[in-house]
Design a protein around this nucleic acid. Structure first.
Length: 554
RNA sequence: GGUCCCAUGGUCAAGCGGUUAAGACAUCGCCCUUUCACGGCGGUAACAGGGGUUCGAUUCCCCUUGGGACUACCA
């Protein structure tokens, strides 16, 4: 048996092993009943992943009760994978999704809250103290090996160990190292990794209660896992246990990929003598490829990058509502019954989260988004669209802000009422969709031959008559009556039965007539209500457009 | 390989021992209709397979199969 106090002093001569000062520095939180402290703890290894956003939505929904805390912690303990400014970028994207943690890391700005620092690389001193404490408790030991996995002889040594002892317990051979040997290594200035001295038995089963998976029987940990790397930086497990304890986390939300390691994390909590914190393992968002399901990959899948949705102009609420629906599938029922409520009012239930890994479906996102946008007022559409355009399509932003009232009138067409139009699902599609309302009309590609086979003179005559008879003060019915009369006068047929009986006798039916007018003034065969469009354009503009068309009709 | 997780239509999913097995998206058809939509109505489409337990299994247990994840001094 080693003298662990002595070992602790050897390993960490200038470090305080009194962890209590930290518990004094970071007092326990005053929480009201049902309040939770939850945290999002990404690594600065790239952009915000859709799975991260998925978790953020979970955090938002969990931390609604008064005094609850949702804080952000940056887990930058892997320098090899770290990407410069990724932390900033992450925070920036989180804010863009209108997710506002009320504590913690804030990118370029100072951390907020008294439990910091919230960036792990700034907490090394704390980790050293806790490491020394653990060594003194006899629950950790140094390992001077190079990376074991690279060294066949060490692996062989471990296997031999297992065989000799007739056990399956995979203790690290270095736990038998003598004080003398340690002293020698230290004197040579050899760096060491700190390992957990596991007392678990992987053949023994213990009970574990996951907040969404429920009660599970899992194997005890038996591995002497690395706690602190030989560069002095802790690994996830160690930092997680120390930080979440010190920061007063009450529920640990993390991806399901961590499920396998809970046994070791629990052992660490116990080794320290800390209270265990409940875990909630969320499913991973997948996609199907060649008939197989796989986790959405950062490298391969553009839709895994949350910035994709921002750039493409998906309203952030729509994306979050889609994710929320993945979490609690009765959300859409609630949404239908409460079309005007804010999504956070939804009675979220942890136990309703599905345990399987869902496949991400952009078509469904589109649908949720269409629905969301259809519920907005024209002013809200204008504001959100403009905000998007200012960042991603400045030319369009200028067109939009040239005349805000006009723009809002455009978006007001077929908006509101019982059955609002549901056509737009992302801001980036608006410019093309409404190009006839915002762009230079003379630049639109209009070719009547592609639409209808009647001569140009007649077309011109029809359009001219249309404008002359057009008045903004008409009701829709009156306008439509005029359309019928005009159609009949120009060789079209407003009586569908008569038309069907003898289509050869006419230039087309009423539908064709209306479509001709639509096409002439918009260049499209698919637009919202024609009369409303003409009203928004105004009679003068219609005449302007006819002038342009005149040349094409010569 | 080992360990763990998951398994209802194309997708998300209700269901938690007895149901004509919900609903949404997608898809198809019809209706409404001045186009396109929106909307309405309807259709196609599922309990992976095999054993148990039970009067009775989609539901509980086991096995198989399929898929996923973990298995780092990465998170």
């Amino acid at each position: 048996m080693l003298d662990y106090n002595k070992l602790a002093e050897m390993l960490y001569p200038n470090v305080d092993k009194n962890i209590n000062k930290y518990f004094q520095k970071y007092p326990s939180r005053n929480l009201l009943k049902d309040a939770v402290v939850t945290r999002f703890a990404p690594s600065p290894t790239g952009y915000l992943h859709i799975g991260g956003l998925f978790q953020c939505v979970t955090h938002e929904m969990l931390s609604k009760k008064p005094t609850s805390v949702f804080y952000l912690r940056l887990e930058d303990t892997d320098q090899k994978r770290e990407i410069e400014n990724a932390g900033d970028l992450l925070y920036d994207t989180i804010l863009k999704f209108d997710i506002v943690p009320n504590e913690g890391y804030r990118g370029n700005r100072d951390d907020k809250g008294i439990y910091g620092p919230y960036v792990q690389s700034e907490r090394l001193e704390i980790y050293q103290t806790f490491a020394k404490y653990l060594v003194a408790k006899g629950r950790a030991f140094p390992c001077f090996c190079e990376k074991c996995e690279d060294k066949e002889d060490i692996v062989a040594k471990r296997e031999q160990e297992i065989e000799n002892n007739n056990t399956t317990i995979d203790h690290d051979p270095c736990r038998k190292i003598s004080l003398e040997e340690i002293e020698e290594n230290l004197a040579m200035g050899k760096p060491f990794a700190l390992r957990l001295l596991s007392k678990g038995n992987p053949n023994a089963i213990m009970e574990f209660d996951d907040l969404i998976k429920g009660k599970r029987k899992i194997r005890e940990n038996g591995k002497d896992i690395v706690l602190i790397k030989n560069n002095g930086i802790p690994v996830y497990a160690f930092a997680h246990v120390v930080d979440d304890t010190l920061m007063g986390t009450t529920v640990i939300v993390r991806g399901e990929d961590w499920f396998q390691s809970v046994a070791s994390h629990i052992e660490l909590f116990r080794a320290f003598g800390f209270d265990e914190i409940p875990y909630l393992h969320t499913p991973n968002i997948c996609k199907t490829e060649e008939g197989k399901k796989r986790k959405l990959s950062k490298r391969k899948d553009p839709e895994a990058d949350c910035r994709f949705y921002i750039q493409d102009g998906y309203p952030v609420v729509a994306v979050k509502e889609y994710l929320l629906n993945l979490l609690n599938s009765d959300f859409e029922d609630w949404r239908r019954e409460n079309p005007n409520k804010y999504y956070k009012e939804f009675p979220f239930a942890v136990e309703k989260i599905n345990t399987g890994n869902p496949v991400f479906d952009i078509v469904k996102v589109n649908d949720v988004s269409k629905d969301y946008i259809s519920r907005l007022s024209s002013k809200e559409v204008y504001q959100q669209l403009l905000a998007w355009a200012k960042e991603y399509d400045t030319e369009f932003a200028e067109l939009l802000s040239k005349n805000p009232e006009y723009s809002m009138n455009v978006f007001d067409i077929e908006r509101g009422g019982e059955k609002p139009r549901k056509d737009i699902y992302k801001w980036s599609m608006v410019r093309e969709y409404y190009n006839y309302m915002f762009e230079d009309f003379s630049k639109l590609n209009i070719n009547f031959k592609e639409l209808i086979n009647i001569d140009n003179e007649l077309i011109y005559k029809i359009l001219h008559t249309y404008i002359v008879l057009f008045e903004e003060t008409l009701t829709k019915e009156e306008w439509f009556d005029r359309m019928k009369k005009m159609a009949d006068k120009h060789g079209f047929c407003s009586d569908n039965k008569a038309y069907k009986a003898n289509p050869e006798a006419y230039n087309g039916n009423l539908s064709a007539f209306c479509n001709l007018v639509r096409y002439a003034f918009t260049g499209k065969t698919n637009t919202p209500d024609l009369y409303s469009i003409c009203c928004v354009l105004g009679k003068d503009e219609l005449f302007n457009r006819l002038d342009v068309l005149k040349k094409k009709l010569k």
